[in-house]
Design a protein around this nucleic acid. Structure first.
Lengths: 333, 333
DNA sequence: TTGAAAGCGCTAACAA
DNA sequence: TTGTTAGCGCTTTCAA
């Protein structure tokens, strides 16, 4: 039993196969009676149009490619889910490729997507070289970079306003009476992190607060392990901070572990804040106050950028407003 | 500047475009010299073969469809990542569709993938009606159901041996000296859950242990909220159990929250186990001992089933062995 | 070893 | 309103 095609339908309906195509595409150039008859026959014969063939002639696939540094990372999987929702609402499917934080693999995946003739590619970057790497491919397929390691210019990107997020956090701590805070996990490697750190410095200056730094020299990622190590280092020679603001939630989770192991109570002895609002932070026993990156908004912005890209001559970016999520890891002093 | 096609290459190389195709496909029916020359030209002209056109004639897309109940759910996102890895290793890309636990949407997504002419579909079911719903589509595309709500027969599926997992947990608790345990969250709705519950009953009988049940009548999901509610009900009228074994990690997380709120200490007052080994359970302050479903193994099994499906006449299933993951939520009594 | 040509299933002019 | 036909970019016979 072979797949039923448009020609089989045409034969049964006794029309040309162009007419079947018209019935299916909702064209107006067709009689109401024939349309209904054809549609009924399609239904009876379980006909499902071949999107490969359709893509071939229409030169669009209605597929969006996603190259992500991880599928499993909670922040990213939430973002991917948001992208899938947005794509689906607009008649697109998602082809999801994992770069596993590997720049070479990222290039391969990107190139593969190009060959698939996807209508656009959303990249959640594997590293700070990502943009340079991928923008060297000459292609007319629109590309947008989301969330991290954002380039200076020349490409589409969407990210939250990291400086504003930092300020949100610092202001909140200030309102709680904190005057001296530790900013944990500053890292030079990524622009995102630099913007956050700069935001902290600016906000502290503006609000008359003191900030001390515990940098993450490790060029690895902002992992829980790094957070734990850094926090322990601080606990060993504390400088009187009443709150720790971590560059990411993963670091905050690690700092929380360090505190537990070193007998430092949160929030009684020290307040703790993260950044990202990954789902982990909402768990019982964790309850970390943090700055949310609204993934659905980011997904919509990325989609807009991709589908409207032809309209805009000059490449541009979209900045998303972060949001404070208060839980139980901070107290007033 | 238009996309460069096989014809452009042919023109430059001054050969027929069939020859270019042969050079690219690694055919043996071509001179070594011409092949190298053509490949070099392809490289110079940044030629990327059009997989849509290729799929059109080869009648395979090298795309695997995934219909999942959630992208964001930690267990599923880990499973999807594992599927992506397996697929990539074998030259496939993934088209990921979210059913959002919605059976109607699940059907639509499935049908869409059929139209996309994917080479196989992996379904992480949205509910117990999933298999009945989807197997009504007549198609020659192989389908495999993974992980939950498994049918009785007639379809490919891969799942862990839930009864064995239950036994693993019960034996572990027994070895710790527990003699009476609470099984929290039994649910009639899903076969997976029924198998787990039956496994618990069998293991307890075998090991001479007593088990009391706290069922999840709620036909909703095995959520943290349900776990919290159920555990609180139990705490209100305890029956002397020294350990709680939850049907899923999500329930266990909820039970942990309930314990915290009711002043019940874990593991001092009562031991706690989960099932699934979602990443949450490994977090500091959580540390729930649980039964792991090895996602990579499951992904490989699903892939095998799909790609070998033509070889096997009779549909079959693969059962994966679960594994005990010991953390800090249980103590010996 | 290479070229010519048919055709994959569909859409979109152009004709009728 | 409907039919005819020319492709879309590629692979794969069949000839040369």
């Amino acid at each position: 039993m072979d797949k039923v095609t448009i020609k089989d339908i045409a034969k049964v309906a006794d029309v040309s196969y162009a007419t079947v195509s018209r019935a299916l595409s909702g064209s107006s150039e067709i009689g109401e009676a024939t349309r209904e008859r054809i549609l009924r026959i399609c239904d009876e014969m379980n006909y499902i149009p071949d999107s490969v063939a359709r893509s071939m002639v229409k030169k669009r696939t209605n597929i969006l490619g996603v190259v992500t540094a991880s599928i499993n990372n909670p922040f990213m999987s939430e973002l991917i889910e948001a992208i899938e929702i947005t794509a689906r609402e607009n008649g697109y499917n998602l082809m999801v490729c994992n770069s596993a934080y590997d720049l070479e693999l990222e290039k391969r995946q990107f190139s593969l997507l190009l060959g698939r003739r996807v209508d656009g590619i959303i990249v959640i970057p594997a590293g700070k070289e990502t943009v340079a790497n991928l923008s060297s491919y000459s292609t007319d397929i629109p590309v947008v970079y989301v969330s991290e390691n954002i380039p200076d210019a020349g490409q589409f990107f969407v990210a939250i306003d990291n400086a504003a997020g930092a300020k949100l956090a610092v202001s909140y701590l200030q309102s709680l009476g904190h005057r001296k805070i530790l900013y944990l996990g500053r890292r030079e490697g990524s622009l995102t992190h630099r913007l956050r750190a700069e935001g902290v410095v600016a906000a502290c200056r503006e609000l008359g607060m003191e900030v001390v730094f515990k940098d993450n020299d490790n060029d690895g990622k902002s992992s829980m392990e790094a957070g734990c190590r850094l926090a322990k280092e601080y606990f060993r020679s504390p400088e009187g901070c009443t709150a720790i603001f971590c560059a990411t939630d993963a670091l905050a989770l690690g700092a929380m572990q360090a505190a537990d192991e070193d007998g430092v109570r949160i929030p009684e002895d020290i307040s703790l804040m993260g950044f990202d609002n990954i789902s982990f932070t909402a768990l019982p026993r964790i309850g970390i106050t943090t700055i949310e990156q609204p993934q659905l908004e980011m997904a919509r912005a990325a989609f807009e950028l991709i589908t409207r890209s032809s309209e805009e001559e000059n490449r541009q970016s979209i900045s998303i407003e972060p949001r404070l999520v208060v839980r139980t890891s901070c107290r007033s002093v």
